[in-house]
Design a binder for these strands. Structure first.
Lengths: 307, 307
DNA sequence: TAGAATTACGGAGGACGTAAGAATA
DNA sequence: TATTCTTACGTCCTCCGTAATTCTA
């Protein structure tokens, strides 16, 4: 009865679904049970967490929502971590991948691995958060995740537990302009000059706008339309049609039809791809990690040895 | 019954105490209950987690130990975060502080705050992990934590949830030599040259040796004796007596008796102090934060907005 | 053989479903 | 008034303590 994971799970489900009843259905509970769960949590914490009709988080509930999903994820990660110990090495390697992380170098490494080791590889392209989730919960053996950072800085990844990140590659950034756009003929642009432009918010495919805001230390980058999913070509189509701008790695952007990528000159940033793997990856996973990073058995920074 | 926090709590206690019975006493349970908790966890995860007589973690148990304490801490953090919302602003400000973080600038800021705002301040000096714990669980309003990093790099802090870090200050590093030591007359030393020297492991007071190893990318830095607690002068006494070397910030080290601090030339590192505070600090806490960092109301990097 | 963990068992309390009752759009 | 959440209540099951049992240093 004391912050039970079940309670947290239904709490999250209720806010996700904005409804007790559909949350109950999703979890296989009765509406009544869900109601009791929320009531129990609220009694335990001594505050109302959820506003009913319409269902929404109270300030306290919003606070709890900053913790609960991470807690539940880590709980699953713990279970997965232990399960991994007693699991036969799979014959197939699963790689979770954010769209812009699946660049040429990763593809080449995969090809080499399949040729050399005759390992079946499954590549699953998902959003960035999902990459982390899949690696932590062992639904994927490895993850490739992309983002922007200052050159040779690590990506700021949240709360990974005993997981290891390995730098994979850095590439220049580019802004996608529709072909024929006045700025499309420039050699380079400054992101800060474009803060007031029209942007496409494509948090899972391109660089998320809030990340741009953070990294430029500037406001702006207001989304004009929102693009969900992990389809790079769909994003390119939107950009080509003039719906707004987006930031992608230059090599990837250069291969997209209908858009002209213009390198980002300032601030000095790179598109960085990192390889995520559990603390003790399987042998083929380790193999692939070495291939992707293009170096021999290698040092990597771990997340729990810090301070 | 599904990875209940209670079970995790007793699991951690059992391994901490290396005994079911003393863990039971510490938790206010019966030995029997503890035994049942462990059995339940092991049944749930399908593996033995604890070796009995002597009590020790199995490999799977060690895995779980990489998650359980963090989970429990975050659980407490969530509760504390919510409690903070409905709590009257305290008349007293509590600052948790790692020993080497309490430098001159922090002391000055505290003095100014007391003078300007007539706020009672309680400073509690504890180990680095405890600083994080106290801030997350709202036992302290603010935390000052120190460590080494490359210049203007953030400290690598684990899993802080919705917490904000604010750069406070950077200072040169120094190695503590006993006065009269042959190297004590040098202007500067390289840490890597000293990897094979005798070291004092003082993880809570000086820079932890494993951090030195990580940051130098070198092995060595073997502990000769271990110094626990948070007493800088005790550490200095040990160093002065020639028991081994330790790394501290230069300004602090210069004020210690019996030792000669020699600046670290390479690798290019700084002693960095960061101020930790919850996402919505109380007004006096915010005030102190601004004083410590010596700038007006200020931007800060948050931990959950990443990617 | 003593100290320490496990197993057996019973009672108290918690959790969930059914169903009836309030509340709001 | 219809939908959605809450409350009431009964049943089942879980949890923990007592106490007897087994294990091992």
């Amino acid at each position: 009865m004391h912050m039970d994971p079940h309670l947290l799970r239904t709490f999250v489900a209720v806010l996700d679904h904005r409804s007790f009843s559909t949350a109950a259905a999703a979890l296989g509970y009765t509406q009544s049970a869900v109601s009791q769960h929320i009531a129990a949590l609220e009694a335990d914490l001594g505050t109302r967490l959820v506003e009913r009709r319409p269902v929404a988080a109270t300030p306290a509930g919003a606070r709890l929502m900053e913790h609960a999903p991470a807690l539940l994820l880590r709980l699953d990660a713990a279970r997965a971590d232990i399960a991994r110990l007693h699991r036969a090495p799979a014959d197939r390697l699963t790689l979770a991948c954010s769209p812009a992380a699946l660049g040429a170098s990763a593809a080449r490494a995969l090809a080499r691995l399949r040729a050399a080791a005759h390992v079946d590889v499954e590549v699953r392209v998902v959003g960035r958060e999902a990459v982390i989730e899949e690696v932590l919960t062992a639904r994927a053996d490895l993850g490739l995740i992309d983002g922007v950072a200052a050159p040779s800085d690590p990506l700021p990844l949240p709360d990974l537990g005993p997981t290891v990140t390995l730098a994979a590659s850095e590439e220049p950034l580019a802004v996608l302009f529709p072909c024929g756009h006045p700025l499309a003929r420039r050699d380079a642009v400054r992101l800060t000059d474009l803060a007031q432009a029209q942007w496409i918010d494509s948090p899972d495919t391109a660089v998320p706008l809030d990340r741009l805001r953070a990294v430029c230390g500037a406001d702006g980058f207001r989304p004009r339309i929102r693009h969900l999913g992990t389809d790079v070509h769909g994003l390119a189509a939107l950009a080509a049609a003039g719906h707004g701008l987006a930031v992608l790695p230059l090599p990837l952007a250069a291969a997209l039809p209908g858009v002209t990528p213009v390198p980002v000159r300032a601030p000095r940033l790179v598109h960085r791809t990192e390889l995520l793997h559990p603390a003790d990856p399987s042998a083929p996973a380790r193999r692939l990690a070495d291939l992707v990073t293009d170096r021999g058995p290698s040092r990597s920074r771990s997340h729990e040895d810090s301070r």
